[in-house]
């Protein structure tokens, strides 16, 4: 449905997206997860035809976003990070205008309008000026404009940013209810958003792909590994290489004075590590198991502590 192949975007010397590839299947909700300035918005702008990629290719429903922009624009509904609203228009005037420029045939426009208003829960504010409605309603108007031409693909850039907790829950439910026929990509820097609304995730940082896959796939690959974090009173850099020599240890990394030791599932090396620490007189202060879940994965990706 959506395929991104070796996408690169440079702004002068600054590389915003670097050789990014991923694929999203029809009818899925995928999250584009990454810290601020990871390249999420740039990726979405390329997919929607707002910006051209410097290199690489992206297709939506088989249409190339660079060579066939008009076909792509017809099937994409896009909510940019700053909701594109005209403050001096009423909600209904605005949605009429969007329906017109999104080429909704005039015969169907009334119906499309009613559906978008109903789905996004805008009944109460349709006659009001956009500048006078609340932040939450503005976000809803943004979602309504993305939906009005009944697009096959929805691209939502940080749909819940700046909302209060109740509004966040409402918007997440709204997004989930849109699933089915549509393929949805949403970007966020909040992990909970992905685990609660998405089927899969693409994690990026500094424009690079860190991990991607469905949530099940990712948790399964994480579960294959086990490990501990140990804190030692007296240990230098050489400790890492000594730890690495324990049979079965796959990876040792040092972070903030602590050592993370990882091994494959099914073994238990805790005893061996403790014994070694005593033999070497390192002063073992603490040993705790690493709970490997998506949250850890994301944190480590973001802090740069993982290679994939």
């Amino acid at each position: 449905m959506i395929e991104v192949e070796h996408l690169t975007k440079k702004y002068g010397d600054l590389v915003a997206v670097r050789d990014l590839s991923f694929k999203v299947d029809k009818g899925m909700i995928w999250g584009l997860l990454g810290p601020n300035a990871a390249g999420k918005t740039t990726t979405m702008r390329i997919l929607t035809g707002y910006l051209p990629a410097t290199e690489g290719k992206a297709t939506v429903c088989g249409f190339d976003v660079f060579d066939q922009p008009n076909e792509v624009k017809r099937i994409i509904g896009y909510l940019p990070e700053t909701v594109p609203l005209y403050p001096e228009m009423t909600v209904s005037d605005y949605l009429d205008f969007v329906a017109a420029i999104k080429k909704v045939p005039s015969a169907r426009r009334k119906k499309a309008f009613d559906l978008a208003v109903e789905t996004s829960g805008l009944e109460k504010v349709r006659k009001r000026l956009i500048k006078n409605i609340s932040r939450g309603y503005k976000q809803r108007v943004g979602i309504a404009q993305a939906l009005i031409h009944n697009p096959d693909v929805l691209i939502l850039d940080e749909p819940t940013i700046g909302l209060d907790p109740a509004q966040i829950i409402e918007i997440r439910q709204l997004i989930k209810s849109l699933k089915g026929e549509r393929t949805i990509i949403l970007s966020t820097h909040i992990l909970a958003e992905v685990t609660q609304t998405c089927d899969g995730v693409v994690i990026i940082n500094e424009g690079k792909l860190m991990a991607s896959g469905s949530l099940e796939e990712l948790s399964a690959s994480i579960r294959k590994k086990e490990g501990v974090t140990i804190r030692l009173r007296r240990a230098g850099d050489e400790a890492a290489s000594i730890l690495r020599e324990i049979p079965g240890v796959e990876k040792v990394s040092r972070q903030n004075g602590e050592f993370a030791v990882e091994w494959s599932q099914g073994k238990d090396l805790r005893e061996a590590i403790a014994k070694l620490a005593v033999e070497k007189d390192w002063g073992l202060l603490e040993m705790r198991p690493v709970a490997m879940n998506i949250e850890d994965l994301y944190l480590r990706v973001v802090s740069g502590g993982i290679e994939t």
Binding site: R45, T48, G49, Y50, N70, K73, R74, I76, Y78, P80, E81, T82, V83, P84, L85, Y86, P87, V98, I101, K102, K103, Q145
Partner: peptide
């Protein structure tokens, strides 16, 4: 300035 150009340029016009 208000970001509505993103709406215009991602519409099929």
């Amino acid at each position: 300035k208000i970001g509505t150009d993103e709406l215009l340029y991602t519409s099929p016009i």
